[in-house]
Amino acid sequence: MTIHQQPPASHDISAALSQLAGTELQALALVCTVGDGPAASVAAYITPDAASSAMFRHAIEMEGSYSDTLLSFDNNEPPYYGSDDRRIDLGLAADRLGVDRVLCVVMLDAAGKVAVTRDYDGLEVTLLEAANIQFNRFTDMLDGVMKIPTRTVQ
C-alpha cells in the first residue's frame, strides 16, 4: 500500500490532540488511514511514555479486543471507559493531522482518566485488519517486546 502523505512530527500529534481534547494528554495512541481507495493504508502512533499507565495499557488491549470483535462480525458493544468528557471530533483531528481518517484515539489525561473516540463505520475489512495489527503492536510495545518508535506505519 502506498502512503500519499504522512502525519506531522510526533510532538505535533500530541499537541493537536491535546488541543482538541481540551486538556494536556499524558499519553495517546492513534490509528488512522492515509490515502483513499485501493491505495489506502493504516498509520499508527503511540506516545513514547505510554507504558507508564496500567489503565492506558488496558484501554489499548480493550480496543484491540473490540477490533477483533468487529472482524468476527460479532455485535458487541464497544468498550466504555466511564466518561464521554474527552470525546474529540475525529474529522477535525484528521484535518489537523493531515490524514484521511482517524479511526481511533486512546487518550490518557493528566488526571489519569482514559478516554477513547473511535469510528469504524463503513471501513473496509482489510483496513480494519491493519488497524487490529496496530493495536497488537501497541500491546507488544507496552509489554517491552518492541521499542516504541516515534511513528509506526504499516
Rank of each mutant, 00 (worst) to 15 (best):
residue 48 P to W: 08
residue 51 A to M: 06
residue 52 S to R: 12
residue 54 A to F: 13
residue 55 M to Q: 14
residue 57 R to H: 13
residue 57 R to E: 09
residue 57 R to L: 10
residue 59 A to F: 05
residue 59 A to N: 04
residue 60 I to M: 02
residue 61 E to L: 13
residue 61 E to W: 05
residue 62 M to F: 00
residue 63 E to C: 04
residue 64 G to Y: 07
residue 65 S to K: 07
residue 65 S to R: 12
residue 66 Y to A: 07
residue 66 Y to T: 07
residue 69 T to C: 08
residue 70 L to M: 11
residue 70 L to P: 01
residue 72 S to P: 02
residue 73 F to H: 15
residue 73 F to G: 08
residue 73 F to A: 15
residue 73 F to E: 15
residue 75 N to A: 13
residue 76 N to Q: 10
residue 78 P to N: 04
residue 78 P to H: 08
residue 78 P to A: 06
residue 79 P to S: 03
residue 82 G to I: 13
residue 82 G to W: 07
residue 82 G to Q: 05
residue 83 S to L: 08
residue 84 D to F: 05
residue 85 D to W: 12
residue 87 R to E: 12
residue 87 R to M: 09
residue 88 I to G: 09
residue 91 G to C: 03
residue 91 G to E: 09
residue 91 G to L: 09
residue 92 L to H: 08
residue 93 A to Q: 05
residue 96 R to A: 14
residue 96 R to P: 03
residue 98 G to Y: 00
residue 99 V to S: 00
residue 99 V to C: 15
residue 101 R to P: 01
residue 102 V to E: 00
residue 102 V to G: 02
residue 104 C to L: 08
residue 105 V to H: 01
residue 105 V to W: 03
residue 106 V to P: 00
residue 107 M to G: 03
residue 114 V to Y: 08
residue 114 V to R: 04
residue 115 A to E: 11
residue 115 A to S: 15
residue 116 V to N: 00
residue 118 R to G: 07
residue 121 D to H: 14
residue 122 G to P: 12
residue 122 G to D: 02
residue 123 L to N: 04
residue 124 E to C: 03
residue 124 E to L: 11
residue 125 V to M: 15
residue 126 T to V: 12
residue 127 L to Y: 12
residue 127 L to R: 03
residue 128 L to I: 11
residue 128 L to S: 03
residue 128 L to G: 10
residue 129 E to T: 13
residue 129 E to N: 06
residue 130 A to S: 04
residue 130 A to T: 07
residue 132 N to C: 12
residue 133 I to G: 13
residue 133 I to C: 12
residue 134 Q to G: 11
residue 134 Q to N: 07
residue 135 F to E: 04
residue 140 D to R: 15
residue 140 D to I: 11
residue 145 V to T: 13
residue 146 M to I: 13
residue 146 M to P: 07
residue 147 K to V: 09
residue 147 K to G: 06
residue 149 P to K: 09
residue 150 T to W: 00
residue 150 T to P: 05
